[in-house]
Design a protein around this nucleic acid. Sequence first.
DNA 1: TAAGATTGAACTGTCAATCTTC
DNA 2: GAAGATTGACAGTTCAATCTTA
Lengths: 156, 156
Amino acid sequence: MTDDPATRRALKLFVVLSRAQSAIAAHAARDVARHGLSLVEFGALEALYHKGPMLVGELQRRILISSGGITFLVDRLARRGLVERREYADDRRARLIALTPAGTRLLAEIFPEHAAVIRRAAAGVSPAVQRELIDHLRALGVAAEHRGQREPTSPT
Amino acid sequence: MTDDPATRRALKLFVVLSRAQSAIAAHAARDVARHGLSLVEFGALEALYHKGPMLVGELQRRILISSGGITFLVDRLARRGLVERREYADDRRARLIALTPAGTRLLAEIFPEHAAVIRRAAAGVSPAVQRELIDHLRALGVAAEHRGQREPTSPT
DNA sequence: TAAGATTGAACTGTCAATCTTC
DNA sequence: GAAGATTGACAGTTCAATCTTA
């Protein structure tokens, strides 16, 4: 595979990181599916529920989806009466997305149980280990993101 | 959001876990895209490169894709001449998937640089922290997977 | 000219049904 | 009847092009 121990370690880390993420995501997805929602749909609703109305682009960056994807997603949620588009006076190109009363009610109903599902899925490791994981994963994520800031243009 | 500290911690853990995974995956995807491959395509080729030929179902479980998805993926890779389907004498329902010489050459060419990309993406945390992360994420992932074994039937 | 959002085409993945072999 | 693989219909995403406003 590779001889260099640092490289082997990094590859292993990426594998276990991906597996753990997908194992917990599977629990989360199964839970929200009971209410006819995908994980991405739930993520958008949850962001609006906890942060309040936000611009389409803000929501897009928060849930890591393409610009075309966010438009289609908001369409879907709007068609189901869970969110609505509002005009944004400060910049008439932009639109504000907000939960409708029905959307707010739905989230108030399903969020607590969803949070409990995540809590149980993570309960395999102790609180102390969870705290360590949070710190270290945050550092790992931030560093990896910053390394991506510079585009893959060849240095002239 | 939630008052219970254990629940808050688990939600936070899931968020940083997802962000770290996707930050590293973004580097990996950008790297293999230079060769016209998606991350899933690369994952399948890499499995075959390091483990040798395997049954369709084995490959499917290894890269976490649906049964329809694996057939479509193998079709794509076969059309590009990177893998081939072989008959499997022990069970004539099954098929063995193997890299072609061209597929093997491609992986020999791109794997080292890909591994280096992952190594650099993970370099934001020290080797000691990486080792801890590997152990704890493995425990977290295994526990979360096992909890999924029993279906969501209510306890009687 | 650029930035925010949307559109339409193309692609990738899932799901349920099916075919073959066990 | 069950298991391995495939198929076809469909849902969800991305990408490039476009429209509107800054």
